[in-house]
């Protein structure tokens, strides 16, 4: 947010335009404001209220104060889920972004059939949340899966990776990296905003590809990298579907893939403790909001806008 204030301070328009902006902003934001008031705000605030209650879904809620929030810190499984989620975010987000950027650049231009390749590489992401994925992932990382067949050539006897407590989370990270299609597409779109003349000038100056990448592509792509970073982070903290599908909803084996949101879901819908689940959700919001704020603050130093 700091960044926006900064921008607002430095760029001072005349008084007339500012007045005009206010009115125009009201028009442009009208749908969003209506949506916020009518559809978004109520469920949000309701869940905040419910986080202070013992809401079971099946009976009306009773106020219990901050009991739910206190309970979290004594809940070993909650702490486990927090650990799993942090590990997941820490590894899979950078890996996925790197993969997406790499392939976006490889698929950007200069080759025949790129449209086809792009679509092929996007295909896994289309499937990412499907129920079939549990089975497909077992075909790759299961006891008799592709990976172990490959290892068998070298005489290595692999585990059933998806269902081993030490490796299951790793396979989910790979699953996340595998579905890099979304950030890749955004990078692809972003790369086209980088004017080609910069590269031409740089080539004439004799800058290497690597130099060009770091001194042209990265800075000019930085708003998009920033976007992907912020959104993938928010998304990864809420990762649910893949762990849910692959572990059959348990977060197993032995809670090794018990993502925060998965645990929250179990509490809310399986143990009928929606009050506790809501408290967990708001605590997560606090964490993610803080990290996003840090992200925005840090972006002042590496994200370049043209305005």
């Amino acid at each position: 947010m700091a960044m926006i204030q900064e921008v607002a301070k430095t760029r001072h328009a005349s008084r007339e335009t500012r007045k005009g902006d206010g009115k125009a902003a009201a028009v442009f934001l009208a749908p969003w404001f209506i949506g916020l008031g009518l559809i978004t705000a109520f469920p949000l605030l309701a869940s905040l209220y419910l986080s202070f209650t013992d809401y079971s879904l099946l009976e009306p809620p009773n106020w219990v104060g901050i009991e739910n929030y206190q309970r979290m810190f004594e809940d070993a499984r909650w702490i486990q889920s927090l650990g799993v989620t942090f590990r997941y975010v820490f590894f899979s987000v950078p890996l996925q972004l790197a993969m997406a950027l790499m392939l976006a650049m490889a698929l950007d231009k200069g080759l025949r059939g790129l449209a086809f390749y792009r679509s092929i590489y996007y295909l896994p992401s289309l499937l990412g949340g499907s129920v079939a994925i549990a089975l497909l992932w077992r075909q790759v990382f299961g006891a008799d899966g592709l990976v172990n067949q490959f290892l068998a050539y070298f005489g290595i006897q692999g585990y059933g990776w998806v269902s081993h407590p030490d490796y299951a989370l790793g396979t989910l990270m790979i699953l996340n990296v595998w579905t890099f299609g979304a950030p890749m597409v955004i990078f692809l779109a972003g790369l086209r905003q980088v004017p080609t003349m910069y590269y031409e000038a740089a080539s004439i100056d004799g800058a290497s590809k690597v130099r060009q990448f770091f001194s042209i592509t990265i800075p000019l792509l930085s708003p998009i990298i920033f976007f992907n970073l912020v959104l993938q982070l928010i998304g990864a903290f809420q990762a649910f579907t893949q762990a849910f599908v692959v572990s059959g909803g348990t977060g197993g084996p032995i809670d090794s893939t018990l993502f925060y949101t998965l645990y929250l879901y179990q509490q809310g819908f399986k143990s009928f403790d929606m009050g506790y689940a809501s408290a967990m959700a708001w605590f997560l919001l606090l964490i993610v909001a803080c990290l996003t704020a840090v992200n925005f603050f840090a972006s002042k130093y590496w994200v370049f806008y043209d305005d």
Binding site: A134, R138, A143, Y159, G160, S163
Partner: peptide, 17 residues
């Protein structure tokens, strides 16, 4: 019965698996 990880895997696979 099979080792822990294979057992866990089969467990999740339903009657068919």
């Amino acid at each position: 019965s099979p080792d822990g990880s294979r057992t866990t895997e089969i467990q999740a696979a339903g009657p068919e698996g």
